[in-house]
Nucleic acid binder design. Structure first.
Lengths: 246, 246
DNA sequence: GATTGACAGATTGTCTGATAATCAGTTTAT
DNA sequence: ATAAACTGATTATCAGACAATCTGTCAATC
């Protein structure tokens, strides 16, 4: 019981398969090709497959992904708008680089917005939201103990997602998502630094605790503190490994 | 003493002109066609030429602008990423609509970010920045007195631009620009409301004053207050003229 | 030897035409 | 009346073409 749709590209290679999930939900079959390209590239950049400063040549992407230039170019425009790639006229796009100063600014704004999100969550979040958040914290702690990197990343994302949802503000979510994407460019989970992880867990617990107690200001402070600490570690690392090109 | 480059579109209409400025600087001849389409459409939407909810049909845009589908489609992707248009797969883009709740959220985040920008400006802005800001305030007041709508809009934009620059934070600028673009969708300059304009001028003066005195917290409060007031008027108007579709 | 200018290759920017997929509305058949 | 089939419009995507622009190389000039 599945649908599939194949494109007979010249190279004989590329095709897409959309599987119907076992439950009643149809897998987002809609997702237009262009969107999949976007997601693939975003992932590739986030995972370091393409590194900051690296050129992204149209033709290569087309071959690599098995899609036409139209789809690739449109996807690139999207990523460009998101700020994770930068393109110069007639030179094509490169994965965005980020200077030390920009990274600092990025974390500053993130702290501001995430603090706000935390406060809103504490004041307006539903009981359901809070329960979800607590579950995310538990999973995060477990993931931290497990030592499995991918699980940790998933848990962290789940936590932030929940936090943004709880803020009940679409724009906070959008802006924060954008910032998160760009922070990924740093290719440095501050959590890979020794000792940071334990602190991180503790900080996150404080956030959840403040929210559970409906203490808005405290939640904001906890969020801000969490980001500030992460920023400190990340920026310190950046300074040492001075990765300044351009 | 000018260069010009014409594209003989089918309709005979469209062309681009690049003028060489009187000084040694060549006018940004670069601006790729796609970018010009973006700007044109953004303007058209901001000025109400296309109204929220209105469909944007590819072919029509091509004819209207005299460019190929490639350029139009890529420009649309950009605008979509910016949030000022929304597109559904296989149905094409429409100018984004914004609900009352979203508008409220929008203003909330804007107040937060603009308050932050004001604070940063007060604490980190250069003397030059402050001078520019003061000039912008003067022009704004003059524009308010002149009663010329377009001049008022320009002055307002100049002021906000200056404010964002003074914050010395690229991300604040980017995020705020994005929010401003979306607020334009409301097609309601809160300043068109009777009596609002005078208040607006007063509020802006307070912002500039606080910044001049290097009083960060006061600047933040003044910015926040300014946006909150604008929000109040705008939301009130929205509630009355309940423009809820979708 | 350093600067300038011309040339070639690579890549992007843009247009055009074609085909398949999808949506929305209308007509037809049960 | 409901469901099925048809139709027209529009989008999604590909392929191929050509002009514009960038980059590096190499010869010509001072």
């Amino acid at each position: 019981m599945y649908l599939w749709y194949a494109r007979g590209g010249a190279g004989g290679g590329p095709f897409l398969v959309m599987v119907m999930e076992s439950d009643l939900q149809i897998a987002k079959q809609s997702a237009t090709l262009r969107v999949k390209v976007e997601e693939t590239l975003r992932q590739a950049i986030a995972k370091g497959r393409f590194k900051p400063g690296q050129r992204l040549v149209e033709r290569e992407l087309c071959e690599m992904l098995g899609v036409g230039r139209t789809s690739v170019r449109e996807a690139l425009r999207q990523l460009e708008a998101e700020g994770i790639i930068t393109s110069f006229p007639h030179k094509g796009p490169v994965v965005s680089t980020i200077t030390y100063e920009e990274a600092a600014q990025l974390y500053t704004v993130r702290a501001l917005l995430e603090g706000f999100a935390g406060q809103q969550f504490a004041e307006n979040g539903t009981a359901q939201d809070i329960a979800t958040l607590q579950a995310a914290v538990v999973e995060f702690e477990a993931a931290a103990g497990s030592g499995v990197g991918s699980r940790l990343i998933d848990a962290k994302n789940a936590f932030y997602n929940c936090l943004m949802d709880g803020s009940k503000n679409v724009f906070v979510r959008q802006l924060l998502t954008s910032l998160h994407n760009r922070i990924n460019l740093l290719r440095m989970t501050s959590m890979t630094q020794p000792g940071r992880l334990a602190h991180s867990v503790a900080e996150i617990k404080e956030i959840a605790e403040a929210i559970k107690n409906r203490n808005g200001p405290l939640a904001a402070a906890a969020c801000k503190h969490h980001i500030d600490q992460a920023a400190k570690v990340a920026l310190e690392y950046l300074r040492k490994n001075a990765v300044n090109e351009s």
